[in-house]
Structures are given as C-alpha cells and as structure tokens.
Simulated scan of single mutants.
Amino acid sequence: MKTTLFALAALTATGGALAQSSSVTLFGVVDASVAHVSTKDGSVTGLANGGNASSRLGFRGVEDLGNGLKASFWLEGGINVDDGGSGFKFDRRSTIGLLGNFGEVRLGRDKTPTYQNLETFHAFGDSGMGAINGHNLISSSAAGTIEGSNPKRYSNSISYLLPKMNGFYGQASYAFGEKAKGNSNSLSSSMGVRLGYGNGPLNVALGYGTTKGGTAADTINYKTFNLGASYNFGMLTPMVLIASERGNNQRVDLYSVGVKAPVGPGEVRAAVSWYKDKKRNERDSVRLALGYGYKLSKRTELYATVAHMSNDDNATRKLGTSLAHTVAAGKNATGYELGLRHNF
C-alpha cells in the first residue's frame, strides 16, 4: 500500500513538473466603434470593427524542451465584432517555431518584416480611422502576387529572428511562391529583412522587402523600403516614418510624422501622412488624424478619433475604417469614430 501511494505521489509530482514546463494561453482583442465618413458625394454612418486595434482571437503556447531550447506555436484569427463575420480561420498568424540562445526559427503565416515598421512608427498604427495604410501602396491586387505588391503578411514562410543583443533586434523572412516549375517556381515568392535598435527611450528600425509578380515570361520585382524612428521623452513620444514602394514602372513614397503624449488617464495621438505618387500626375494625398484614448483599466480603453484625407484630382485614397465607403477621384473624405477596446 505504501509503495502504491509512493508511486502515485511520484507520478503526481512528475505530472506537475511537466505541466509547469509548458503553457497554452487564450488571448484576444474585442474592438468596435460607432463611425461616420463623409465626402462631397454622400456620407455613411455605422458600426466599425477594430477602430483602435484589430479584433482577434488566438491561442499561443510554449514548451520548455530543456537546455535553453523551447518549442512554440501561435494561432490567431481576425473576428468581426460588428456583424459576427461569416467564418473563422487563423488568417492573422499561424506559426510553429523553435527558440533558443540562437534566436528563433519560425514557420507559417506571419507579419512581414517591413509591415512591422509601418505599425510601430505611426501614432495610430494600422487600425481605424487614422490608420497609416502604408502597405500595398502600388496595388493590393498586383498580377502574379498572392496578396499584393507589399502585403501585410507572408504565407508559406520561414523566418529567423535574432536573439536579444544589447537592444538590437532583427528578422529575415522568405515566403515560397509554391508555383509549378513550368510557371516559374519563384513566381509569387517574397522576402524581407528588418534590423532595428531599441534601448531605453530610442527605437529605430530599417526594413526592406521584395515580392515577385507578373508572369513566368515577364516577372516584376516589387520592392519596398522603410525607415522609422521614435524617442520617448516621457511627456511625449515623437515618431517619424519614411517608406517607398516601386515596381511595374510605378513608385509611391510615404512620409509620416506623429506624436503620442500621456494626458490624464489616457493618451493623445496625432499624425500627418503624405502619399506621393512619383510616376502618375495628380495622385498625391495627405491624411490628418487626431485622437485620444481614455484608459478605463489596463486592458480596456475608450477612444475617439477624427481624420481627414485630402486627395489630388486623380487620387482615390480612403480612410482606414472598416466602415464601407467609396471615394471618387479628387474627392476628400472626413471621418470620426468613438469606440471601445478590450484586451484579454
């Protein structure tokens, strides 16, 4: 009897040790806002999804394999709070990887290295009325590519992330086009790199990427470059972003300056962004955005944003809200939103 009890106790202790060596976390963001967009041709008001941060649901986990080696997975999909959506899939991120002193090797679908700069160095990131909208500056449906001339995410990718080294960080990614050899095995493939330095109040990073489009007989290399920086002075954090996208005899440059500043129990955000089309006339735009986030708790925020997009005669750029609206060539757009975001 004592032997049996001892064996059960040992088994229980072993099971507890194993349980402590791995973990799985359920997480997500729920974000919705009442939004309004108006142009000279009309206006629309409704409920928008992700005005402050993209709504999502995910699972992530880590297992300690010993000797400093860990295995990890991350499954994350977007959700629509406004209408519930028509289906769910892990379209935001689906990765598996190994971590150690060498850094991390990650396989699957993930954000591109260059897109992370667009999110990091803009006061509103890439969500809601003030969103930067700095990806796919040339075309979101570029022929021969999977998700445009400069997508947010790579599918079928393998990435290497540097370990933490005195503030330096970096990532290199390659995404397989997965085309048959007769159609050019590298068509639709992409690659990107990012190198940055974040230490104390300073954060600066450089990104570069290419995406191969066109056809097997006539390929097109879309290239993107960006450079961002921010500095936290305590009372405010100014930030700057420079980006350029080129390919198929087109070029669009993006310049943005912004600031975040703690005010009361929340934060003021402001940004000005210029979109410059270098190959086509009268296709430039300017976006102004101002907002405030009031922190109800560490995980819940009430926010308000107002934004204005000024388009040249041939430009049709829209505001970043998920609220469906169209902008005719040469028309300006003004919008505002009041929303609530909760992280869990």
Rank of each mutant, 00 (worst) to 15 (best):
residue 181 K to P: 12
residue 286 V to C: 05
residue 277 D to E: 14
residue 51 G to S: 00
residue 107 L to N: 07
residue 209 G to T: 04
residue 55 S to A: 11
residue 3 T to K: 14
residue 308 H to D: 09
residue 22 S to L: 05
residue 218 D to A: 15
residue 190 S to N: 06
residue 219 T to W: 05
residue 170 G to S: 09
residue 16 G to W: 12
residue 325 H to K: 00
residue 88 F to W: 01
residue 27 F to V: 02
residue 97 G to R: 04
residue 170 G to H: 06
residue 104 E to T: 11
residue 45 T to L: 01
residue 323 L to I: 00
residue 88 F to T: 02
residue 297 S to Q: 07
residue 220 I to G: 10
residue 162 L to H: 13
residue 311 N to S: 05
residue 148 G to M: 03
residue 314 N to C: 00
residue 298 K to L: 03
residue 72 S to F: 14
residue 73 F to I: 12
residue 4 T to A: 14
residue 312 D to M: 02
residue 114 T to G: 11
residue 263 V to Y: 14
residue 290 L to T: 05
residue 316 T to R: 02
residue 222 Y to A: 08
residue 101 N to I: 00
residue 316 T to I: 04
residue 224 T to Q: 13
residue 227 L to I: 07
residue 178 E to Q: 09
residue 133 N to R: 07
residue 341 R to D: 11
residue 219 T to R: 12
residue 276 K to L: 12
residue 33 S to T: 05
residue 297 S to C: 10
residue 279 K to A: 15
residue 8 L to H: 10
residue 342 H to G: 13
residue 114 T to S: 13
residue 197 Y to I: 05
residue 98 L to A: 06
residue 116 Q to Y: 10
residue 178 E to F: 02
residue 22 S to V: 07
residue 215 T to V: 04
residue 158 I to A: 10
residue 83 D to C: 10
residue 160 Y to V: 04
residue 16 G to R: 11
residue 100 G to D: 04
residue 336 Y to M: 15
residue 200 G to Q: 03
residue 19 A to F: 08
residue 279 K to E: 15
residue 165 M to R: 07
residue 186 S to H: 14
residue 135 H to C: 11
residue 34 V to N: 12
residue 221 N to C: 06
residue 177 G to N: 03
residue 46 G to S: 06
residue 322 S to F: 00
residue 247 G to S: 08
residue 127 S to L: 05
residue 26 L to F: 11
residue 183 N to P: 02
residue 37 V to K: 00
residue 335 G to L: 09
residue 179 K to M: 12
residue 191 M to Y: 15
residue 242 I to W: 15
residue 247 G to M: 00
residue 181 K to S: 15
residue 298 K to D: 12
residue 146 I to L: 14
residue 156 N to F: 03
residue 39 T to E: 08
residue 342 H to W: 12
residue 113 P to L: 08
residue 335 G to D: 13
residue 9 A to H: 04
residue 209 G to C: 01
residue 47 L to Y: 06
residue 314 N to T: 02
residue 204 V to D: 07
residue 119 E to Y: 09
residue 267 E to L: 00
residue 20 Q to K: 15
residue 76 E to K: 00
residue 57 L to N: 13
residue 112 T to K: 01
residue 31 D to K: 01
residue 230 S to T: 04
residue 145 T to S: 09
residue 272 V to I: 09
residue 53 A to F: 06
residue 28 G to M: 01
residue 241 L to S: 03
residue 60 R to G: 15
residue 167 G to Q: 04
residue 328 A to N: 11
residue 290 L to G: 14
residue 301 E to S: 14
residue 324 A to E: 11
residue 245 E to M: 06
residue 31 D to A: 08
residue 273 S to A: 13
residue 107 L to P: 03
residue 171 Q to K: 06
residue 217 A to R: 02
